[in-house]
Amino acid sequence: MLFMVIERFKDGKTKEIYRRFQEEGRMMPEGLKYIDSWVEVNCDE
């Protein structure tokens, strides 16, 4: 079974959140498998 998760971040938090992803990974529950993602062009700060 596949699920699509849409993440929305508070204004000004995008760089901070992606830095955490790089440092700590996605921190998903055991048993979930990350497949792919895309980023909207307008998300940069």
Results as ranks from 00 to 15, higher is better:
C43T: 12
R8D: 11
R26Q: 07
K33T: 15
K13V: 01
M1L: 12
E7T: 04
R19Y: 09
C43W: 03
M1W: 08
I17G: 00
R8K: 14
S37G: 03
P29W: 03
Q22T: 03
P29H: 05
C43D: 08
E45D: 10
G12D: 07
V39Y: 00
Y18A: 14
E24V: 02
K15Q: 10
D44A: 08
E45C: 03
C43K: 09
C43I: 13
M27R: 12
G12F: 01
Q22H: 06
M27L: 14
V41P: 02
G25W: 01
L32G: 00
L2Q: 06
K13M: 14
G25K: 05
Y18R: 15
Y34P: 02
D36S: 14
P29S: 02
F3I: 10
V39L: 12
L2K: 14
F3P: 00
G25M: 01
P29L: 09
D36T: 15
R19C: 07
D11S: 13
I35T: 13
R19E: 12
E40N: 11
Q22I: 05
K13T: 11
R20A: 12
I17F: 04
E16P: 00
I6P: 00
D44F: 03
R20C: 06
V5E: 10
M1N: 12
E7A: 05
N42C: 10
N42D: 14
E24L: 08
E40D: 15
E30G: 05
E7W: 02
S37F: 03
R19H: 13
C43V: 13
W38P: 00
T14R: 07
N42W: 06
G31V: 08
R26M: 08
Q22Y: 04
D36P: 00
N42G: 09
D11A: 13
E30H: 02
F3M: 08
Y18H: 13
I17S: 04
M27N: 13
D11E: 14
M27Q: 15
E45L: 06
V5N: 10
E7S: 07
G25E: 00
K13Q: 13
E40S: 13
N42T: 14
Q22S: 13
R26T: 02
I17H: 11
E40A: 14
K15H: 05
I35E: 08
R26W: 05
G12H: 06
K15V: 02
D11C: 04
V39N: 05
M1S: 10
F21T: 09
T14E: 11
E23Q: 15
M27C: 09
I35Y: 10
M27V: 01
G31A: 11
K13P: 01
L2P: 03
N42I: 05
F9K: 01
C43A: 10
G12P: 02
L2F: 03
V39H: 04
M1V: 13
E24G: 01
F21K: 11
V39W: 00
E23C: 01
